Amino acid sequence: MTLWVGLTGGIGSGKSTVAARFASHGVPVLDADAIAHNLTAANGAALPAIRAHWGDAVFAATGQLNRAALRQRVFADATQKQQLESLLHPLIFDAIQAAQQHTALPHGYGVVEIPLLTEIPRFRQLVQRILVLDVAEPLQIERVKQRSQLSDAAVATIMAQQASRQQRLAIADDVLTNHGDLSALHTAVDQLHQYYTALSQP
């Protein structure tokens, strides 16, 4: 059977590292964030709707989206944030679905990295299994601080806007605990690769 695994986890959980390890085995990895960025890049499919709603004020003179201007408007107003999400999420869903249909699966399965898989139930329709990266919150905070040079308060604000650890675990088919070093994480992904390869066989 064709198997798509939804990869998700909170900030600092190691999603990019895990996705790269799957990719090193030749497993196709679709990145929802990258797709969203493409939709709002030059000539992106989301730009006409964004211009229609927010006008020229969120665009540069070159015609490119002024991401900082849009971010300032959207994140200061929960209603506008919801409006942007209602515009972008269906486009992201359709783009992932289209990519899945045109992606060869040499090992019988592929991975879709979707940070908001817990928060947006509709995206779960795109996958047959959900892999959650689980990290204890103190370690999660420490990793984000080291990577991004953010304060405790800034990290806490980001985490408060995401699903809780318990909410993510509640939707998981598989859980990868990322409390160890990089070698341990790679070994765990390698084991999952073998498992998903076997699971996808007819």
Rank of each mutant, 00 (worst) to 15 (best):
L65Y: 00
S148V: 07
T177D: 04
V175L: 11
K145Q: 15
A156Q: 13
H186Q: 15
L105H: 07
V189M: 09
A98L: 15
A76K: 00
G14N: 05
Q162G: 02
G9T: 12
A198C: 11
H186L: 07
A36Y: 02
G9V: 05
Q80W: 07
I114S: 11
E142K: 00
L88N: 01
R67G: 06
L139N: 02
A78F: 08
Q128L: 09
D56L: 13
L192D: 01
V5K: 01
T62Y: 00
A95G: 08
L116R: 03
H179K: 04
N178G: 12
A154C: 10
I171W: 03
L169M: 11
R129D: 13
I11S: 03
Q101G: 14
H186E: 09
Y196H: 06
V144F: 00
W4L: 03
L65E: 06
A61S: 15
R143A: 01
W54C: 07
T8P: 05
G180A: 14
H53Q: 15
Q146L: 15
P138M: 07
Q125S: 09
P28F: 14
V132R: 01
I96V: 09
A98P: 11
R147G: 10
D134H: 06
H193C: 14
G63N: 12
H25F: 14
S200I: 05
I158K: 02
V18I: 09
E142H: 08
L176H: 06
A184P: 08
A76R: 01
L70S: 10
N178L: 12
A69R: 02
A184Q: 15
V135N: 04
L150V: 13
Q149P: 00
G63M: 02
L87Q: 00
V175Q: 08
A154H: 07
V175K: 00
H25L: 08
G6M: 12
I130C: 05
A188R: 06
T2P: 07
I50T: 13
P106C: 14
I158T: 10
V18S: 10
R147F: 14
Y109N: 08
L70Q: 09
H37E: 02
I114H: 05
A95P: 03
G14E: 08
N43S: 15
